[in-house]
Design a protein around this nucleic acid. Structure first.
Lengths: 159, 159
DNA sequence: TATATGTGCTTGCGCACGCATTGTCAATAA
DNA sequence: TTATTGACAATGCGTGCGCAAGCACATATA
């Protein structure tokens, strides 16, 4: 059983990570909302669509790749459709399914928002660190995500 | 002007940070909700109160220390009051103000939840890293938070 | 003191979310 | 073929949030 107290570095490594995340998300969300009238969640969906084959993904795929449930994603896509950034197409190969497809307007909006996003992250976060430091950070995260993946798989197998 | 593309380490250092945060928060929130019937936000408020002098803080202080607005914090405290974890006292020195005060029941619940929280963070995250690595992470975050503090102050001065 | 302005908290409203349910269709088995 | 089971997306409902407005009180100004 792990002790129920953090050591000094432990508390800082975890606690301050929360603060860093909160501060950056505040800045990003404010910028995306003010300049591009989209939330960070909507931005991420547009981004994923832009990466996808044919700029299209199923609602289910989008939901699984995000924090949202199916219903949340269904409504998020609906908002993007209303905003003209995404089109909805029912799936030819599966009558139940629906695709979200990036529109030209969506591509344009995303392109601009993505540039601002990257620029903001660089300006406030990345610029504070050297290239080797960033590589080390990345390797820290990679270690966690690998471990997390194994644990999730083990849990799934149990059920 | 910073380039509108991430270098390899840059994209990973930032993008995977988001994934790490999301994965940990999912685990923490699930545990807190299932075992202690509180959200992570509520947990943080209880924690802050336990640190505070006399186990009491003003609603405004709590809001400023968190992600929430005043109105959001007003309602969060209301929920904690209904759950019996926190009491509400109007401020003697300022007729407008109100204190949230940790109750005995709140202290007990917090104590248990905090132990579980720490244990979970250690188990899934901290245990993956050596003490020097954690110290380095902490120093990375410290660097960001210092920079962020200065920038926020500069912005505030401008307005 | 009297008036104007500011501050702390609460509340009405609208929005986004999750959960549970429903309708539609696909895949499998009898 | 027909029935069963499961999967995908949409929707009713409840909840938590931010914004803006309101109320009560404090502070500054004349």
């Amino acid at each position: 059983m792990t002790n129920s107290k953090f050591s000094g570095s432990e508390g800082a490594a975890w606690g301050k990570l929360l603060n860093v995340h909160a501060a950056m998300m505040r800045r990003l969300e404010e910028m995306l909302q003010k300049q591009y009238q989209i939330s960070h969640g909507e931005f991420e969906v547009l981004l994923r669509l832009s990466w996808a084959n044919g700029h299209r993904m199923r609602i289910r795929e989008l939901a699984e790749a995000s924090v949202l449930t199916h219903s949340g994603m269904s409504r998020l896509v609906e908002r993007l459709v209303r905003a003209g950034l995404v089109g909805r197409e029912s799936a030819a190969e599966d009558g139940r399914g629906a695709y979200a497809v990036l529109t030209t307007s969506g591509q344009d909006r995303l392109k601009a928002a993505e540039a601002s996003n990257i620029s903001l992250v660089k300006q406030y976060f990345l610029s504070l660190y050297s290239e080797p430091e960033l590589a080390q950070m990345a390797s820290f995260w990679e270690r966690f995500l690998e471990s997390e993946k194994k644990l999730t798989q083990a849990e799934a197998a149990k059920i």
